[in-house]
Simulated scan of single mutants.
Amino acid sequence: MRGCGRVRTVRGLWQWRHNPLRRVTDLAEACAALAAALLILCAAPAVGWLTGAVAHDALSDAVREQRARRHEVTATVVTVLAQPPVDPDPETSSARDAHRRVLARWTGPDGRTRTGTVHAPPTGAAPGDRIPLWTDGHGSPVGRPLDGATATTHAVLAGVGAAALTAGLVEGARRLVVRRLTHRRYARWDSAWERAGQDWGRAGAGS
């Protein structure tokens, strides 16, 4: 609704450009509103699309790189370790506090058998259970690689954010221009009233 109102305002001001009562500031305000509307309708989506495309390409490269360097193996739970106390402070506690740590054994991509402490699945684990585990080329545990759906979601969010930021900057610039024009208009009114006040009371001032 705000966009439609701005378009109607621009149309009205633009049609008024030949009115003998219009001021220079009125025409400047109409031009600023028209430029802002065009930039919001055209430039903001273009910036959003470009940002999303660049982010998607970068994230897609990251997905391919992580999938090439990270390997999913199956680890066997040896024993379930005692769960550390949960930190009551939400600002310092992490999501890992909710997962139990287990001692597990697995064979890495290099063929070597390794034993180490890893996080059990959220559903829990018991000795002898087999759990999925991501490792690097040397068999050391690493995080799960980024998937394509998550990369696409992040790229879309980046594009939407860039478009919204562009529109906000354009609207902010328009408001700044209108404010400066309004101040200039008030200054001219004050000057006109001051000149008119000097003629009040003089003979023939009203003629």
Score class of each variant (00 low, 15 high):
R2F: 10
R2K: 02
R2W: 12
G5E: 12
V10M: 10
V10I: 05
R11C: 00
L13K: 12
R17T: 00
N19P: 05
R23A: 11
T25S: 06
T25R: 05
C31K: 09
A37P: 13
A43L: 15
A44Y: 08
A44V: 14
A46P: 13
V47Y: 12
W49K: 06
H56I: 00
A62Y: 00
V63G: 03
E72R: 14
E72H: 15
E72K: 11
V77W: 06
A82L: 06
D89W: 01
E91F: 08
S93H: 04
S94G: 15
A95F: 03
R96C: 02
D97H: 08
V102Y: 13
A104D: 02
R105M: 11
G108P: 02
D110N: 12
T113L: 09
T113Y: 15
V118R: 02
P121K: 06
G124W: 07
G128K: 09
D129H: 08
P132C: 00
W134P: 09
W134R: 06
T135A: 01
P141I: 02
V142A: 07
T150D: 08
T150A: 11
T152N: 06
T153I: 02
G159P: 14
G161F: 13
A163C: 08
A163V: 12
T166K: 04
G168S: 10
G168N: 04
L169Q: 07
R175D: 00
R180F: 05
L181N: 05
T182A: 02
R184A: 07
R185H: 13
R188C: 07
W189S: 15
W189D: 12
W193V: 11
E194N: 12
Q198R: 09
R202C: 02
A203H: 06
A205I: 03
